[in-house]
């Protein structure tokens, strides 16, 4: 079997697992055995059982149900954020790369400055100022995330601009908008989508991380990072309340990161 084929099989496996995770969270309301927000004084910190597959937390809420619903928050916010960054970043990057000029230089310097700080440091500062909430967390992460798309789109556009087929399209009397949407964007799509895949894992860490620190999703909304934060106070009494949301984060991020890496390898072959 060729290396390419092996890689393709691994990509299919990864994509299937990733798809299952996304589906499970999307259909959380059908899959969850219990109401994720229903507290029960009778079932505080129960060990995993048939009724509560992952046990219960300090307020007697079903952890399995909360993990499913929490995934919806984390994954939903991640996809939305990556999609918005993709659109905004790509558009800015293509325009900068294609037209150049002062706007290009200015935006790219801003990008350089923003990239000089670790993404999480900026995100914590911004989310702290905004004072929590899922949209605050998304904005905080989005401030730096569009840059990776913009830089990628810009560099590809810039080198593509000098290709003869762009010159040919110009001489064919095609408008700049036509050239950007019909020639440049389709040729950019593959590297940008690959970048989008690799950004998913990073963003999940970001959202869960901010929630864990208490400046992302606010309780009682189910979210993996927030759940760990709540449960870490009584980790000795019921470790499963920390373990299962942690496992969910780890598995999801590993799957999406691996998928991104594999797709990138595949494209480079």
């Amino acid at each position: 079997m060729t290396k390419r084929k092996q890689l393709l099989i691994r990509i299919i496996i990864c994509a299937t697992v990733a798809g299952l995770i996304v589906l499970a969270t999307m259909f959380a309301s059908f899959l969850a055995p219990n109401d994720p927000y229903a507290t029960s004084a009778a079932a505080i910190r129960q060990t995993p059982s048939a009724q509560y597959p992952f046990g219960t937390d300090n307020l007697g809420r079903c952890i399995f149900s909360r993990v499913l619903y929490g995934g919806r928050t984390t994954i939903g916010a991640t996809f939305l954020l990556v999609a918005i960054s993709f659109v905004v970043g790509t558009l800015i990057g293509m325009l900068c790369g294609y037209f150049g000029g002062i706007a290009d230089r200015l935006l790219m310097r801003i990008a350089d400055v923003a990239l000089a700080f670790p993404q999480m440091v900026i995100a914590i500062a911004v989310a702290g100022i905004l004072g929590g909430g899922i949209f605050g967390a998304m904005l905080a992460l989005g401030i730096t995330m569009w840059i990776s798309f913009a830089r990628l789109a810009r560099s590809h556009t810039y080198s593509m601009k000098n290709q003869s087929y762009i010159s040919a399209a110009i001489l064919a009397g095609k408008s700049n908008w036509y050239i950007i949407t019909r020639h440049i964007f389709p040729n950019l799509l593959a590297p940008l989508l690959t970048n989008g895949l690799t950004q998913i894992g990073v963003t999940m860490v970001g959202i869960s991380g901010l929630s864990f620190l208490g400046i992302g999703v606010t309780p009682p909304t189910a979210e993996w990072g927030a759940m760990i934060n709540e449960a870490r106070a009584y980790i000795q009494l019921s470790p499963w309340a920390v373990f299962f949301p942690g496992l969910a984060i780890a598995v999801t991020i590993i799957v999406f990161n691996e998928l991104g890496d594999l797709v990138m390898d595949y494209r480079e072959m």
Binding site: A168, A169, H183
Partner: peptide, 15 residues
């Protein structure tokens, strides 16, 4: 109209 040295590069690879 211009005709270029690299024929492949003078067509959009996706089109």
């Amino acid at each position: 109209q211009m005709i270029f040295q690299d024929a492949y590069a003078s067509f959009d690879p996706h089109m």
